[in-house]
Write a protein that binds this DNA or RNA. Structure first.
Lengths: 219, 219
DNA sequence: ACGGACCTCCCCCGCGCGGGGGAGACGAAC
DNA sequence: GTTCGTCTCCCCCGCGCGGGGGAGGTCCGT
């Protein structure tokens, strides 16, 4: 059965674009649309989508508030994928704190959009999507900081979690392999899985996510 | 059954000396060695030593932080015997708070060293050497003395600190170069300087040190 | 009995990374 | 003045890392 998606955006063009991109996938089905945050909750209750693609800036109720409302009031809530523009970056982390499962830039390539929907639908999270990574390049302030809930929901397997713990201790793949008494190739597989699930580009970003999420604790 | 000991010191000569002294005892067996704090945890898990002879000044994770890490993450942790020199005086109190079971001066006589290992292995807190104890008292009542962090001691230049901050946000060298509007080669130089000063092997270990020392803060 | 998740190991391949050097420009301190 | 530290850029070079595949094993729930 396909992944069902509810589109929430006040711009009809954006909804049409998402519908075109997502609808082209055989395993994804767009089951409904909403033009403002207030309409989301009844629609979620009626349509029971797997994923809600949620815009940030909307009339009546913005994406942050709508996310909180859905997660607070709906039993067995859908995954929330926050769809944002580059200018909304100050809201991104607030959205993740509200319980969103990931975020996505509108300028992302179609393949990335599809990938993001599949990931959150699978119960995984997006910490550093490639298209959003540029946000981190805007330094100076606001520390690109994901919410604690994101990594907790990343659903790492036991082995992957153990590997991440060792990565967060500064061990190389070879050292991890020695420590776990497995082959170096095996560790590479686990590391790749961790990077993919966290949306991290390299082990450094994965370790950062581990610290930022409380997966490992300083001192 | 003999008392099993894990040696943790970045200097091969010190490890060799301890191994010679301790190994000569029929009731003490050196079961492993580590050259830095990060390697301690997997080794402790695998070897399950009774006692860890822990140096204070080591690359990546110093003895204090390694002690905390072991006691926090390992079930049924070994006794921690901190091996220190007079130059390490300032860390004694920190080691106490970290949960170390005893102290040992590197200049101690072989008989004292053996005695210290047997004592902590027996579950007794080692009576601090007089010189060490005075220091502990001095620092103990002087509450509010912040421990000098690894990074403060590292004396990073302003530029190096800025580069480390960006490394700790998950940026690649090229991204840092773009952000600081300098050449990629320049960033490489700064990164290399940071790694050298922190005793880190790669950027991941540097970022870990940044978190562990409070140079960057989660949340 | 079957699929699916998980762990394990293997291949090839490109590239970013880090170490080893060096060198010029600038300002502060001596 | 000279020295020193810092910041900047450059070279070469090896290798660890991460992506792309695949494949066989166990265990478990259906």
């Amino acid at each position: 059965m396909p992944v069902t998606v509810l589109l929430v955006d006040d711009e009809i063009l954006v909804r049409a674009g998402l519908r075109a991109v997502l609808g082209a996938q055989s395993d994804i089905e767009v089951v409904g649309e909403a033009a403002d945050g207030a309409a989301v909750i009844p629609l979620v209750r009626r349509l029971r989508p797997d994923v809600v693609a949620m815009d940030v800036r909307m009339p009546l109720l913005d994406g942050i508030e709508a996310t909180r409302a859905v997660l607070r009031t709906v039993a067995d809530p859908p995954k929330i994928l926050v769809v944002t523009t580059f200018e909304d970056d100050e809201y991104v982390y607030e959205a993740l704190r509200a319980g969103a499962d990931g975020f996505l830039l509108k300028r992302a390539r179609p393949a990335e959009i599809v990938h993001a929907v599949r990931l959150v639908a699978a119960g995984e999270s997006l910490l550093f999507p490639a298209s959003v990574r540029r946000l981190a390049e805007r330094y100076g302030d606001g520390s690109g900081r994901p919410a604690r809930s994101v990594l907790e929901r990343a659903r790492l397997t036991e082995r992957e979690a153990e590997v991440l713990r060792l990565m967060a201790r500064g061990l190389s793949n070879a050292e991890i392999a020695a420590g776990l008494v497995v082959g170096a190739e095996t560790v590479k597989s686990h590391v790749s899985a961790v990077l993919a699930k966290l949306g991290a580009r390299d082990r450094t970003q994965a370790v950062i996510a581990a610290y930022e999420s409380g997966f490992v604790e300083p001192r």
